[in-house]
Amino acid sequence: MKTKDFEPKIMTFLCNWCSYAGADLAGVSRLQYPTNTRVIRVPCSGRIDPLFILKCLQDGYDGVLISGCHPGDCHYISGNYVARRRFAILKTALEFMGIEPGRVQFSWVSAGEGEKFSQVISKVTEAVKVLGPMRKLVKAANSLVG
């Protein structure tokens, strides 16, 4: 498949208090952004187990975006800081596994940043498009493992 025809599927985890509201604002403001994302709302970015991300990649998503409150703005004080540490671990593990770290992205979007949300989605979609389909973990034809 050529890159230009490829439409990636991207799983997006949004924190209830900031990024989800940011996505809402983007919608209410009628901002346009790629439709490649599927959204799961989570109470806090700190709720996300690295396992969720691996599971998404295994189940055929080409990329994963995690978005939470800006540093210092976490509804639960420090959930996003912990998420960032957990994320640093996952990045190291992904590198070891040979999965392009660009497939998994992390960003801060607040409730007032509808504009930023649409930009983040465009940027991530573009980045994953360049990387191409996630074949390694699941999609390899006739691969019997996974």
Partner: peptide
């Protein structure tokens, strides 16, 4: 999609998951 899958599923995921949980 794939014409064949491993049974039971998620064997590799189990180990990769354990890696991310335990490694630290």
């Amino acid at each position: 999609k794939r014409g064949g899958v491993r049974v039971p599923p998620n064997t590799v995921l189990y180990h990769l998951g354990r890696l991310t949980h335990v490694s630290v």
